[in-house]
Structures are given as structure tokens and as C-alpha cells.
């Protein structure tokens, strides 16, 4: 079966696209699936750093597209999770080095060797975003519970729908239960009310993320931890499992509230 191509995007920068891509890829690989990560953020590559694979880059995505390297020369296998491979972005070029057709071809060449292809989209709605979206079968929107991030997510959802792709699913990242309890942060139902798309995961704010990102060892490699468990749940939902949403605010069950919101 050809790979599912999933683009992870957000519109706004700094909401955690790259961290999400890295952790989701690891979680899927740990579930026994062959995963390829594509860093589409050409010129501002990060995914290799977050995955801790920076020092093993020999060739990059642009080298492959321009014919200087074969695909299997550029792909980096993660020693910790052998089912995970990374195709890093070029650092010395910019987004115009690749076009949409080439991204489609690239994924076409990869899709028989993998179960999942995760594409880390750059921020923004320009060329780089369109490159990342072009080959996607589905998309995941990452947003934080902030009005600006939610507004940008709404714009991106509109663009994805205009591109005749399926309606994307949503990850709410960096949720802070304490702030929600005090009414200082948008709660999940507030975000869902505005965006009106399906939720696929909620990731709580976790200091371990900062530490793991700096060390190049994503939290999803660990067995324990709030964020790690959250990524694992998202991976399983992607695989079609029905897993109830965690309640992070300690009051009513989140699922109940979402169900109420959806009028079910």
C-alpha cells in the first residue's frame, strides 16, 4: 500500500510544527510503521536538529531534486528508531529551489518504501507552504491556544480546502491547564468553536520538550511524560484507533464537553 502523505502545517510560526513532526514520526515508527520525514522548510532547516541527526547529513532534499544525489544517499536512518528516516532540507538555498511538481514526484518515489511520509511545512502561506501541501493526502494543523495562532490556522484551513484537499485535522499544542482553569487561556472548545474541524490531539505544555529539543532527543522516544503520551495517542488516532481525549483541566471530561459542543 502506498504511503499516506501527511503535511503538518500551521500558518503561524513557532507553534510547534517541527517538534510535532519529529515526535509524531517517532511515535508512528515505534508503532512499527515505516516513516519518512521530509523537511520542506528549505533555508531554515530544523527537523534534523530536533531529531538529533544534524551531524549525519550528507545530501539534502534539493540535492535529490536537482539530481546530485540519489534518494537513498540522502535519507538518514535514525539509529534509535530504525523505521524512521529523514530527508533533510537544504540550508544554503531558499524555498524557490523546489517546485510543487518536484515535491509530488519526490513523494511518488518514496511512497512504495514507506507507510507514512510526514512533511514539515514552513510557516506562512507562500511558496514553501504550497510546496509542502502539493503532495499531501491529508494535513494536520498545529495551533496553540492563542487568538493569533487560531486566526492563522483558520486561514490555512481555508487555503487547504481551496486546494481541494480533505479538511485537515487539528492538534492543539502547548496547552496550559492551570491557565485555562484560571480563565487566562483559550480552552479546547473555544478553539474548536472557531475552527470547526476535527481534533486529533491535545499536547500539554511540557518543559521536557524544551530539554529534549535542545538535546536532539524528542520526548516521544521516552516511555513516560505528558507530552510523550500525548504524541503516542495522536499516532494511534492517525492509525484509526478511537482514543478518548484526555482532560487536562481536571474538571469535566474534555470529551464530554466536545461532544456537547458538537451537539452529540
Amino acid at each position: 500500500m502506498p504511503a499516506r502523505v501527511i503535511t503538518i502545517t500551521s500558518g503561524k510560526g513557532g507553534v510547534g510544527k517541527t517538534t510535532t513532526t519529529a515526535n509524531l514520526a517517532i511515535a508512528l515508527a515505534r508503532c512499527g510503521h515505516r516513516v519518512a520525514c521530509l523537511d520542506a522548510d528549505i533555508g531554515l532547516r530544523n527537523l534534523d536538529v530536533v531529531l538529533g541527526l544534524e551531524n549525519r547529513i550528507a545530501y539534502d532534499l534539493v540535492d535529490v531534486v536537482e539530481g546530485r544525489a540519489r534518494l537513498n544517499q540522502a535519507l538518514i536512518r535514525d539509529q534509535r528508531v530504525p523505521d524512521l528516516q529523514l530527508l533533510p532540507a537544504a540550508q544554503s538555498r531558499d524555498k524557490t529551489a523546489v517546485n510543487e511538481m518536484q515535491m509530488v514526484q519526490l513523494c511518488g518515489a518514496l511512497q512504495n518504501d514507506f507507510d507514512f511520509i510526514l512533511i514539515d511545512s514552513p510557516a506562512g502561506i507562500e511558496h514553501g507552504f504550497r510546496n509542502a501541501l502539493a503532495p499531501a493526502h491529508e494535513a494536520i494543523i498545529v495551533t496553540t491556544p492563542e487568538v493569533s495562532a487560531v486566526r492563522d490556522a483558520d486561514r490555512i484551513i481555508g487555503l487547504i480546502e481551496s486546494a481541494q484537499k480533505p479538511t485537515p485535522r487539528l492538534i492543539i499544542n502547548r496547552l496550559r491547564p492551570l491557565m485555562i482553569r484560571h480563565g487566562d487561556m483559550l480552552d479546547t472548545p473555544d478553539v474548536l468553536e472557531v475552527l470547526a474541524i476535527d481534533l486529533i490531539g491535545i499536547v500539554p505544555e511540557d518543559e521536557a520538550i524544551v530539554v529534549s529539543t535542545n538535546r536532539g532527543s524528542p520526548v516521544a522516544l521516552q516511555e513516560k511524560g505528558g507530552a510523550s503520551a500525548a504524541y503516542m495517542r495522536i499516532a494511534r488516532r492517525l492509525l484509526g484507533e478511537q482514543i478518548p481525549f484526555q482532560s487536562f483541566d481536571g474538571t469535566t471530561s474534555l470529551l464530554d464537553r466536545i461532544a456537547r459542543l458538537l451537539g452529540r
Binding site: 535529490v64 531534486v65 536537482e66 539530481g67 540519489r70 534518494l71 537513498n72 517546485n99 510543487e100 511538481m101 518536484q102 514526484q105 519526490l106 518515489a109 512504495n112 518504501d113 502539493a134 481551496s162 486546494a163 481541494q164
Partner: peptide, 24 residues
């Protein structure tokens, strides 16, 4: 696998035909 890709990429696409996915 590499061969297919190699062939595909040997002929750069920005030659004389351009593709763009639009809403229409």
C-alpha cells in the same frame, strides 16, 4: 526506486511547461 527518481529529475520541470494546482 532511485532509477525512477533519477530519470524523473534528470529533466528539470521548469523547462517549458508549468503546472499549478488551483481551486478550479
Amino acid at each position: 526506486m532511485e532509477e525512477i527518481l533519477g530519470e524523473a529529475l534528470a529533466n528539470p520541470l521548469n523547462s517549458c511547461i508549468s503546472f499549478k494546482g488551483t481551486r478550479e
